[in-house]
Design a protein around this nucleic acid. Structure first.
Lengths: 170, 170
DNA sequence: TGTATACGTCAGCCTTGTTGACATTCCAAG
DNA sequence: CTTGGAATGTCAACAAGGCTGACGTATACA
């Protein structure tokens, strides 16, 4: 690895895209792209005195209405204290509704209110617009590859969560 | 857009990958993948009592040795106060050396020390390993598409910074 | 009845971002 | 030579959003 090549690059096949330099460019691309990815929602959120954490909660509540707190916790990968702080302000501000479960009354099922859905679609529109431009610029084959690599980059449990969401509404 | 299709999806061409649902899946893929992307370095950093901000500084100093603080500031997109705090601890801990500029003595040129380079390569190895696995799993065409979409997702100034780094050491 | 689960909450800590104010050093233009 | 502005560093204060630990309540279930 000290020669700037991955072990695979040395063995037989011509895997130039696996050189350390190519991998590093991929790493930097992820870094810079993620900044672009969050830039538009961040601006909107700032106007509403919210942060990225609120966006994430709103996004996944919209994606899976009626989801429980525990479920959301697993998807977001934060502690319940962190999530609760965000969730509490969203409920107080009337963007999220928390309903006690019908079967299991310990659970709280989360829903966006009308106001919550309005903010969600404002954020979502902005982020999709960026995505759409990038997708159109890159073309369908590139998009397929993009998603393939991203999926391969996820931790196993996140990949499961991702696929579950896809099937749910795909 | 209320019908779940992008405007482009309606006009003539069959651009199914631009439906709102497809775009949303891309958004979620970015979110989950970025978690995986940072997971390995984060674990290593925690052992050293550092955070992601230290990683970013170390990465780009390694990438462009002798870079100035201002240059780093632009690349990282944070305030000088934020960067300075991180940089100060790295200098105090002997991972980064800050040399006063030869031509312009106001500038500080940043270099990794041996210890800094050691941590950099530990972090880098871990992150590259994840990237390599993902790349190998997805294949060369997917990788090309991945990078194409990421580049298209960046803000203009970040795309310039990204390309400059690529040319520098590509 | 006792244990486990789901959720909320309080307190405190850390990292990492922000703004504002101010000092220093130095280049360059007048 | 002086002065304006750029590059850098530093102090202070603050906020978001992570974290841990501890504790309480309601519910479910064996």
């Amino acid at each position: 690895m000290a020669d700037g090549r991955s072990p695979q690059g040395i063995s037989g096949e011509n895997l130039l895209y696996l050189t350390d330099e190519q991998l590093r460019q991929g790493i930097e691309a992820m870094f810079f792209a993620y900044r672009g990815f969050t830039a538009d929602p961040d601006r909107i959120l700032a106007d509403h005195c919210y942060g990225r954490a609120h966006h994430r909660a709103i996004h996944f509540i919209n994606r899976a209405p009626g989801t429980t707190v525990n479920n959301l916790l697993r998807i977001l990968g934060v502690t319940k204290q962190s999530l609760n702080r965000v969730l509490r302000t969203l409920v107080e501000d009337g963007l999220v509704e928390s309903r006690i479960g019908a079967q299991d009354k310990r659970e709280r099922h989360l829903y966006l209110t009308e106001a919550g859905a309005a903010l969600e679609s404002q954020l979502s529109d902005a982020q999709r617009a960026r995505m759409r431009t990038a997708y159109r610029e890159a073309g369908p084959e590139a998009v397929a590859g993009f998603r393939k690599v991203l999926e391969a980059m996820m931790d196993a449990d996140m990949r499961r969560a991702y696929k579950r969401l896809k099937e749910q509404a795909g």
